Computed example of a mutant assay.
Amino acid sequence: MTSPDLRHHGDVDAAAGLADFAVNVRVPHPPDWLRDRLAAALDDLGRYPSAAAEHRAREAVARRHGRSPDEVLLLNGAAEGFALLPKLRPRRVAIVHPGFTEPEVAFRDAGVPVEHVTLTGDFTLPEVTADVDLTVIGNPTNPTSVLHSAARIKQLPGRLVVDEAFMDAVPGEPESLAHDPDVLVLRSLTKTWGLAGLRAGYLLADPDTVARLAFGRPHWPVGSLTLEAITACCSPAALDETERLAREAAEHAAYAVEQLGELVVVPPKAPFLLAKVPAGVRLALRDKGIAVRRCDTFPGLDDTCVRVAIRPPREFALFVDALRVVMEELA
């Protein structure tokens, strides 16, 4: 069994009544146009998800990334994709940390040996020579908010699995490998579009890999509302809005760095940042009604690190003010 700490996620830190800077969903609810699309699909819930709806969703994802529909596997959130990866039967897996812990949970629970590649300093990738046949990395990486070079990722050993759950928050997506047929890429739609409760994501890989991962899934593995959300969020209009939101998020990130200064470990490339603070700050913030993500559950980090969701300046100022008070009290 895996350590229970590896199953800890930001939603646990964001208890009811707290100002939420722990969860990385960028908006509190879907935009009106997406809610209207989902509301219009409610009348079809009396019918099973159709093959036509699934095909439309796969085609929308394929067009979005310049792939073919048989290279797309639709998921109930990207996390489901990690649970399917042990079907590839790797002999030994390397996981780059600090990073999202669900891939390690999936492999360890399946009895697959896992080797850590633990980054330090500014969290850049060193030369990796691990004897593995599969490597998992996040890009941008959660919780460090580091964007790795696609060319450098391609030098990692074994088959590559890249978690691009936050790539659509990077203007232009310059380091994405979603177009590369030799790389298995997972994407989430829940972060940008406020769909964490619906669960919507997809996986991109060669057709044989997609077929292996899909084998044994229950019939109708993805519900009608998720299919509608995937189709809608991969439309040309939605992609234009995604880019606008990504550029806006970059402006918000610059403001957050300016406010926090030396507390920021590395310049953030995703809609969250890693901050280095004295031990006890997270719990003191919680006492003042502010939730941030604890980071001692990520291999390679400890309780002096917290992950902070980046919000618009007026909202982020609430966190900055509370942090300033807490730091003064602890000093």
Rank of each mutant, 00 (worst) to 15 (best):
D182Q: 15
V112R: 04
V257L: 05
A322R: 08
Y202F: 15
N24E: 08
L184V: 15
R91V: 09
L34R: 04
Q155P: 01
A232Q: 09
G138C: 09
I95E: 00
I290E: 07
V72A: 10
R212N: 01
V25G: 07
A110L: 08
A232N: 10
P313H: 11
G99S: 09
E262I: 02
T2M: 13
L6Y: 06
L260V: 12
S188R: 04
L119E: 02
V146W: 00
R64K: 13
V61L: 13
D180R: 10
I95Q: 03
V161Q: 00
I153C: 13
T118G: 03
P221K: 10
F215E: 14
K288L: 12
T190R: 11
L88Q: 01
V222M: 12
D5C: 06
L301Y: 02
R108V: 15
R293G: 03
L85H: 01
A322P: 05
N139C: 12
G81W: 03
V306G: 11
A94R: 10
R324Q: 13
S188E: 08
S188Q: 06
R244Y: 00
A178H: 03
P267W: 01
L318G: 03
K269M: 04
L285H: 11
V112S: 05
G77R: 02
V132F: 05
D163T: 02
P278A: 12
I310T: 10
E127C: 08
Y202G: 10
P171H: 08
A254Q: 07
G300I: 08
F107A: 00
A254C: 03
L245G: 00
D182S: 15
V93P: 03
D44Y: 11
A15V: 09
D32K: 10
A94Q: 06
D32I: 05
P221T: 09
P171Q: 08
P113K: 03
C305A: 14
T297L: 08
L6P: 00
L323E: 07
V277M: 11
R286T: 11
A291F: 06
V306M: 14
L318K: 08
